[in-house]
Write a protein that binds this DNA or RNA. Structure first.
Lengths: 218, 218, 218, 218
DNA sequence: TATGAATGAGCATTCATTCAT
DNA sequence: CATGAATGAATGCTCATTCAT
């Protein structure tokens, strides 16, 4: 376990080894519980070298978040064919998302749990990634609305909320899929498409669910 | 800020003060970053008294989780009128959920972020609460299917997945609502009802979204 | 276990219960590891009452030492008939000593181990008791010498050393007897009499063991 | 006093400095009363370094016991010429013992008082050393019996008891010698030889002290 | 006579971080 | 490029002791 202790390798390679070790440790132990000692040892490197390359624990954590956020968005982007209709694009994006998170559970734990739990600077880092995904979904919703040429006047905040909800549901299903044995990325994606797209379709047909008039204010 | 430093109060009262301080501190700083010193000070009490009443940091955290999980499920349960049809019950439950989480942001941070991020024992504690909510939603979906007397044969795992997705979406919207100024619990609930219930309705009409035949394996 | 929690009992009785609990706790846990909480609980009393009656942990420990030292010396004194010849007196004293220590292992642990290990004031307390025993033995040696009317001019320091050695041997045998199953006080006393008295007799016959002339200084 | 604060020395050296400081502190204050802070300061090192090298207070204490037990047994072993007759061997062993304990009073306090007073794991450590010494003495007694070709049939437990008594007497005399000014190791050894060897000789001549028939049971 | 409530002070332990080589 | 040696600063936890009743 851990990288083979090869001496004298180029900086770029060493850095990736360190990030690998860090992602694994942060993902399993959590940000605070992970010690630089453990990370250095798992990377097969002395602690000062970690500091030489990555400056501080905060910087190291940030570097992990950036690398893994980039990897996830790239995986989703590359999984989607932008020529296809909106529902197919969403389907492909979800499949890529569930596949990637299932294959990189520690990375997903870092992004979904640890980064959001340990203070502003880290949370902001994932928030950026999340916004990219929400924007992607928002775009698809608007495209779908245009394709259907019906009711193009969905209020902006409403669309934003729908996208938020969809991304949140996807995140929840990723965790659910990771802990439910025998559940494939494909099945998770299908469940979510059923849940969301059908609802959205109905919605855009002009038949939204109507909240009842209220007596007691919330 | 902080409780008035009244000396000599009965144990039950002090304990609640301590839990208040702990929820606030854990919610804002995180489990590891919160120090028992800070919690004690915020509670207006000396550290030994916290230990005398709550034994350890772990026990204190667990007590926080339990109290807030109980408070949240109670709020939702009491917000729902079980005589109403399924869609109205879900609507009321969501409203109660968004209202409670908006009013107790630290408690929600403890339940949604901190408890899930810091190890099995705590995660298990919230998992129980989550399962109660998922079960509640699952029940509503089945009732709705029966009420519609259509396609009563939804596969069990499918329903479970839908419920997971709905709860996940609700959790995401709770965070979104907490950070979007001027967004009411009512609006958040309506967005989610639109998103989900319309989709479910469509689904149960026998028009699910159909995944395309695949070429590349996932 | 522990005293029955009878309310409102006279001070003298309560004090003895506290000392019982303290001796047991100090003997088993050691002075520092024993907590006033544990002692109070074992005595079936609240902590402030222990302080009211016995002032402080130090005073409580000192009271234990005094009570048990007194009990041990009394047991030895009452076991010895001063009319008998010296060897019979020593035999009886040793039997009483081994019997008492075997019956009160916690008390013996307090006197022999704990009191000597935790600082001057306590060590001084047992030293007094020890000196009484050494004096008793010294007296017997001198009486024996007079009875034998031989070589009455044993140098004082020599006699003191012999008495120290005998008491030390007795203490070691007490520990040994306490941990060797099936070894009676009588057997322990016989072993020591054999060892010591025969040696002393020989010595006083004018046949001491002669140290060889030395080349290397110590 | 205390090591000169030379920075950057090899681990093995620092470890010995730490053990020196620990033996001194444990010997004078006792195990519980000794604080890691004090030990670190006396060693001229920061506390974390002590933990880095010696893991914990328990491990540090155990390391002290091991080192000093080894040093004492080595001193005795090297002080004895196994070619000599039994009485000479005992004489030399005792001289080495008293010399070593007089020169290393803190180490002797650690072994004789502290280690036996603070729980099983430590007591077991010294018990091993003590057994080695008892075995050494037991061997000498048996050799002496064979050399004298008299009464070779001493019962095993009897011999064990005699050896225990002799070692106990030696331990008592070591403490006595340490607190009696002007008393040399040589004198202490001579006193004990007189006490013990003469007694043993007598015993093996077939003139043991005979316990009187008993009326009252013990 | 007796106690529930409360604390100041200290202690073992850990960790991120740096220097000298 | 790489590391063994070293530390300042916290942090969780415990304990003897006291006050108000």
């Amino acid at each position: 376990m851990g990288a083979v202790k090869n001496k004298r390798m180029p900086r770029a390679v060493r850095e990736q080894q360190m990030l690998d070790a860090a992602v694994r440790t942060f993902g399993q132990r959590g940000y605070r519980a992970a010690s630089m000692d453990e990370i250095a040892e798992l990377a097969g490197v002395s602690k000062p070298l970690v500091y030489l390359y990555l400056n501080s624990k905060e910087d190291l954590f940030t570097a992990c978040i950036r690398r893994e956020a980039e990897a996830l968005t790239t995986a989703v982007r590359e999984g989607v064919n932008p020529e296809l209709p909106a529902d197919r694009q969403l389907w492909e994006g979800l499949r890529a998302f569930f596949t990637h998170t299932a294959r990189n559970p520690d990375a997903w734990a870092v992004l979904h749990l640890q980064a959001r739990t340990h203070g502003e600077p880290f949370a902001a880092e994932v928030a950026a990634m999340r916004e990219e995904m929400v924007a992607f979904v928002t775009g698809l919703i608007l495209v779908a609305a245009r394709e259907a040429r019906r009711d193009p006047s969905l209020p902006e905040r409403e669309v934003a909320g729908l996208a938020e909800a969809l991304v949140g549901a996807a995140e929840a299903l990723a965790a659910w899929a990771n802990t439910t044995p025998g559940l494939t990325a494909r099945q998770a994606a299908a469940t979510l498409m059923n849940f969301a797209w059908s609802g959205l379709g109905n919605l855009m047909d002009g038949h939204p669910w109507t909240p009842p008039a209220d007596t007691a204010p919330a």
